[in-house]
Write a protein that binds this DNA or RNA. Structure first.
Length: 500
RNA sequence: GGUCAGUUGGCCGAGCGGUUAGGCUCCGGUCUGCAAAACCGGCUACGGCGGUUCGAAUCCGCCACUGACCUCCA
């Protein structure tokens, strides 16, 4: 039995295919140094509460992390926290996002960082997103970033201008061809990059900052040989991924909006500093839209995760649990946009409940001496789906086919051997709990003991009324409880209820 | 304006040359004192116009529309 499982896993490992943004193709996943896998994902800039948009990459790469671990890879997952250097407008001019928030709230920048990092972690825990192996902060790696600048400078791809250091994109383009990830052409970037006042210290509008001299009022600053200042936004990811995953590593992930210029710039920095391509597979999750539009601060349509969980937002008809949000996101493929709507969320909520109920009901199935169901086939379909560039929607559709199988087994419409039953249970534990990361949230609600006793009492009285064929009393108890928001479910031998 | 995606049934959302994706809704049935819940079953769509092919939602061309990035944002 164990030996059998091993063979399956080894086969499955060899079958994983992921879409590489670099080649715009699906590629067989082959780690540089198996069984070790290095995974780097761009984390949040912690100057505000996490919203639905933050949940997408977190859940997408959590799925990848979980699946790679399921395949017995030794994964080192690094997801950074940006706490310095990310400027307004993602430009090379403008106020630091953290510093601005600190100024507005009259706090130390690190108070802002601590507060929102803590909130982010709470939200991620709620969503059942596993903690990364390492969660480095940009401000803790100033030395590493300065060393990387030195390296780029020594190789002649950076220049100083009034205390700031810029990456020389034109020179890079001549020797390495700029734009291989985003598909942009250097000349177009020159023509289309907006020329801001104050950018004149750059030789070329497409150049980006590696180190910025701090203006007198700028509070987040570190000494350097060039000036008192702070690192450029793109640099932190290159410096930290190199430090923890090495000069070459397997997968770099992030949102599609980071593809340009952030990831393109990372490639430039790492290629020059390390003398070689650093990332083997680039993966990008798509955006979440609301009523067909991307969420954006300027559109005023972004919804915080906390607001989802509490139902406190004008666009929300009700609260949606973290698992509902997670399931909703997993029901679309990560490279597709997914459009938020109350109707879609509610569809996911019901569907997920049906799936999780079936999982709980697996224990009710009794084994026979033959099987009329094809469990091994179902398992193969599930692995094929997840192996195909993490196709979670197709995986989920197969799991729903299995739900029908489970329900029919419970009602003895189908038969299953004990070996197949073990496989079926393992299949659902693996895919639903371990890989998709779904868990039943039902238990915690309405655990007020007195309330439970009173409601149970009422419903037991109703059973007596029914036994006496006192339908008026039975219906009265039911209807009144329903008015108060209780959902009453009659069962063959009793009842179940929950408070909405 | 440049670059890149996409347009699938009432709603969401897979598919990427031939087979029922799946979920929710809706409709029927089982169960029930009646309901609800639960379960089972049913519901054949691919923006428009041409073309390639024995065969196209899937490939090609044109048109229309939507979105993303280049500016905030994951």
């Amino acid at each position: 039995m164990k030996a059998h499982k091993q063979t399956i896993d080894i086969t499955m490992q060899n079958d994983l295919v992921i879409y590489n943004t670099l080649s715009r193709k699906k590629e067989k996943f082959e780690p540089i140094n198996a069984p070790h896998v290095g995974l780097y994902v761009c984390g949040p800039t912690v100057y505000g509460d996490a919203h639905l948009g933050h949940a997408r990459p977190a859940i997408t790469f959590d799925l990848l992390f979980r699946y790679l671990r399921h395949l017995d890879y030794k994964v080192r997952y690094v997801r950074n926290i940006t706490d310095v250097g990310h400027l307004e407008n993602d430009a090379d001019e403008g106020e630091d996002k953290i510093a601005k928030k600190a100024r507005l709230d009259q706090l130390e920048p690190m108070e802002v960082v601590q507060h929102f990092a803590d909130r982010y972690h709470e939200n991620m825990d709620d969503l059942n997103v596993l903690k990364p192996s390492i969660e480095p902060r940009a401000s803790g790696h100033i030395i590493e970033q300065q060393q990387m600048i030195d390296s780029i400078f020594d190789k002649g791809y950076a220049y100083e201008s009034d205390g700031s250091i810029y990456f020389d994109v034109e020179k890079y383009n001549q020797s390495h061809k700029y734009g291989k990830l985003s598909g942009r052409i250097f000349e177009d970037c020159q023509a289309n990059t907006r020329e801001l006042a104050g950018q004149s210290e750059k030789r070329n509008p497409a150049d980006f900052a590696l180190w910025k001299k701090a203006k007198p009022e700028h509070i987040m600053r570190w000494p350097s040989k060039w000036s008192d200042g702070f690192p450029g936004w793109h640099l932190e990811c290159s410096a930290m991924s190199t430090k923890y995953l090495g000069e070459q590593f397997d997968i770099h992930g992030g949102g599609m909006d980071l593809l340009f210029p952030h990831h393109e710039s990372e490639i430039c920095q790492s290629t020059i500093a390390n003398g070689k391509e650093s990332v083997k597979y680039w993966m990008h999750n798509n955006m979440i839209t609301i009523n067909g539009q991307k969420m954006g601060k300027s559109l005023g349509n972004f919804i915080n995760l906390e607001e989802f969980f509490q139902g406190k937002h004008e666009l929300l008809e009700k609260a949606y649990s973290p698992m509902t949000v997670r399931f909703f996101i997993l029901q679309a493929h990560y490279r597709s946009t997914v459009d938020f709507s109350n109707e879609a969320l509610q569809a996911s909520e019901k569907g997920m409940q049906r799936l999780l109920t079936a999982v709980n009901n697996l224990s009710k199935i009794k084994a026979s001496d033959e099987s009329t169901v094809k469990v091994a086939e179902l398992e193969a379909k599930c692995y094929n789906a997840i192996n195909d560039d993490l196709n979670s929607p197709v995986l989920i559709s197969h799991l729903f086919d299995g739900v029908k199988m489970i329900n029919n087994l419970i009602e003895n419409k189908e038969k299953i051997t004990s070996a197949d039953l073990d496989l079926l249970k393992k299949l659902y534990t693996n895919f639903v709990n371990e890989i998709l990361g779904l868990k039943d949230e039902e238990q915690s609600a309405g655990n007020d003991n007195k309330l439970t006793e009173v409601v149970d009492l009422m419903l037991n009285m109703r059973i007596e009324a029914k036994a006496n064929k006192d339908w008026a009393m039975a219906d009265k108890i039911r209807d009144e409880l329903q008015k108060l928001g209780f959902v009453i479910k009659d069962k063959k031998d009793g009842f179940e209820w929950e408070l909405k």
